[in-house]
Design a protein around this nucleic acid. Structure first.
Length: 592
RNA sequence: CGGGAUGUAGCGCAGUGGUAGCGCACUUGCUUUGGGAGCAAGGGGUCGUUGGUUCAAAUCCAAUCAUCCCGACCA
């Protein structure tokens, strides 16, 4: 292509709202343009890259036995109601009605739609396993679109859904998808870290995310420092094992409760509510506190007690409680629950027990919410604790678990961090890094197949509910993360497999014979299967060189008066900046 | 939805009450031509929207919309 046919959309200034390098460079180099919050137009070069990523995904999915289909973006509410997600998906799902008042959603994901397709088609175990996939637009009304293509409200996703008669068969496809994903990201020139993940509201068991390490990553990953162990997981999922070498343990390991010293007593802490403040007051370690974290939803109050030096994992809490839309408890709720101002909640002397109904003075509804109390298992056996006294301005000290309150079924409720023990080898410490999720594979199980009544006949003629897997890749996000990993101060640096063109041909010549030389080189390169972008604009050399570096194709070839005289063609490697003077034959060889 | 900020020409920005400006980009001409050229002449804005205060509003006030940043969602 020539610049006269396929124009550049480069700009000298960064858009004022671009925060991250991928957004800044993609916008400045004319690959994308924002049209609204989380909504992006793909300009010609951006469109080519998007298509190339799609093609790589398609090839690897086909190789792994996937079957491509295309589902409507607009999904009937009926299907969501059938699975029970019409309510669960909440505000994130863009909803609409047609002229008859029938409800629809712009598909944020397609489990329901694909399961519906599958049930109409699947009759027999002989048709299984099958792995349907599509590459199409998804819509999510994100709370906060961010970071350009990393977090959009409209984005292209490859989503695949597999159906199986047995867990073994699901596992086989799951492993195939794992391999396909590795191949896809490798071809895209991305270094990914596969990690164990939480399966969110998709339901199901096994789940792995493909992460790209990046400082703008919105995920925290925990990696075992022992490479032989190789444990890697998303913090949402990482089981917390305290490293006793680091924190002094007060756990009752060798002693019985009768040996616990010190009487429990209230003491006045005045305005000091936070653990930090009270710790300063008493000189005790935050670890010796019990932290209370309180959430509520429409029907419940969730009261969680955790070690004072840790933060609650909302994901773990959510999974445990089964809450979908919840929020931090209001001051009124906390007062009704504890009889005290917020900041003084503790497990001892609480008026309510787990599953009690708490009466609240609410403007709507009957004002009653069921209380759920959860304890973090790490509180088990601790003594000498400081807790809220459920009395404004007072805390309790010398609190002992087992004597003053009891952790019945304890749960893992807190986030693991760097320095904690690896849950797999239980020896090495964990390290932390930030990551962007570019792909995710799940074992979904039978949740959707059951709710939507998918059934095939097995060998004996009995109905069987298939088990499912689902596998997603964000196409635009893959593009953005590739830029995050491949750029310099001058602009983009595309890996060969993604670059819109292999060669940026800078023509600095005028005159018929000279132009003919450039045209011939342009033709020759293309005849050898090398894609070339010929900058034939009437611009000065500096403008062309700068644009060539900004748009970031792997090879920048320059033809000017000097090179014509010497018979040597100048080539610059975009990634290294290395400059070469080559004959035409050497040039071809170098590029191919 | 809570907290903070911004909205003025295609892009980046200045403009604290007296009828709107700079740089880049764009158009035309001349010169220049291997790292974002120079000179000259041009075109382009109901200052996000609505209402208010005022003799007078981009500027002050109110509402509203949009965008961005910090916290809760996910590819």
């Amino acid at each position: 292509m020539r610049a006269s046919e396929l124009p550049l959309f480069t700009s000298k200034d960064d858009p004022s709202d671009a925060q991250v390098v991928s957004h800044r460079l993609l916008a400045r180099a004319g690959y994308i343009r924002k049209q609204g919050s989380g909504l992006y137009a793909y300009l010609p070069f951006g469109n080519i890259i998007h298509r190339k990523i799609e093609q790589i995904v398609r090839e690897e999915m086909d190789r792994a036995g996937g079957v491509e289909v295309t589902l409507p973006v607009i999904t009937p509410a009926e299907l969501w109601q059938e699975s029970g997600r019409w309510d669960i998906m909440g505000k994130e799902m863009m909803r609409m009605e047609d002229r008859h008042g029938v409800g629809y959603a712009l598909g944020p994901t397609h489990e329901e739609a694909m399961t519906d397709l599958a049930r109409s088609y699947l009759q027999s175990y002989k048709q299984l396993p099958i792995n349907f996939y599509q590459i199409g637009k998804k819509y999510r009304d994100e709370i906060r679109p961010r970071y350009g293509l990393v977090r959009c409200r409209e984005f292209t996703m490859k989503d695949a859904y597999s159906f199986h008669t047995t867990d073994e068969s699901l596992d086989e496809t799951y492993q195939k998808m794992r391999e396909a994903y590795r191949a896809i990201f490798e071809r895209c020139g991305l270094k990914t870290i596969p990690v164990e993940a939480d399966s969110g509201n998709m339901g199901g068991s096994g789940s792995e995310e493909f992460m790209v390490a990046s400082s703008i990553g919105e995920e925290t990953l925990l990696l075992c420092s022992d490479e032989k162990c190789g444990y890697r997981s998303n913090q949402e999922k990482t089981a917390f094992i305290e490293n006793t070498k680091r924190g002094g343990s007060t756990a009752l390991t060798d002693r019985s409760l009768s040996a616990v010293e010190g009487r429990i007593e209230d003491f006045d802490t005045g305005a000091a509510k936070t653990i930090e403040d009270v710790a300063k007051l008493t000189g005790q370690n935050p670890r010796d506190f019990v932290k209370a974290v309180i959430f509520e939803d429409k029907e419940h109050i969730y009261l969680c007690f955790i070690p004072g030096d840790r933060e609650l994992s909302e994901i773990k809490m959510k999974n445990l409680a089964g809450a979908t839309e919840y929020w931090a408890a209001s001051e009124e709720t906390i007062k009704a629950l504890t009889g005290a101002e917020p900041g003084y909640t503790g497990p001892v002397g609480l008026k309510f027990s787990d599953r009690d109904v708490v009466s609240l003075n609410l403007p709507t509804g009957d004002g009653k919410k069921a209380l759920r109390i959860f304890y973090d298992a790490h509180l088990k056996g601790r003594e000498g604790l400081i807790t809220g006294a459920n009395k404004t301005s007072f805390h309790k000290k010398n609190v002992a678990e087992g004597r003053d309150f009891k952790v019945t079924d304890g749960h893992d409720l807190v986030n693991a961090h760097a320095g904690d023990l690896c849950p797999q080898c239980k020896k090495a410490e964990l390290t932390e890094t930030r990551g962007i999720e570019v792909g995710h594979i799940f074992k979904l199980g039978k949740k959707y197949a059951e709710k939507m009544q998918v059934s095939v006949l097995d060998q004996t003629g009995k109905p069987l509910t298939p088990t499912m897997g689902c596998y997603g890749i964000g196409v635009g996000r893959t593009m953005a993360t590739s830029v995050e990993q491949n750029h310099d101060e001058r602009g983009l640096i595309w890996p060969r497999n993604l670059s819109p063109f292999m060669v940026y041909l800078v023509s600095l010549v005028k005159g018929e014979t000279e132009t003919a030389f450039v045209d011939k080189l342009y033709e020759t390169l293309q005849a050898r299967g090398i894609s070339v972008y010929l900058d034939d604009r009437d611009e000065r050399a500096g403008v062309k060189f700068n644009d060539a570096e900004l748009v970031g194709f792997p090879f920048i070839v320059t033809v000017g008066k000097k090179t014509l005289e010497s018979g040597k063609i100048e080539m610059k490697l975009r990634r290294t900046g290395e400059k070469l003077e080559l004959t035409e034959a050497e040039l071809m060889e170098k590029i191919l």
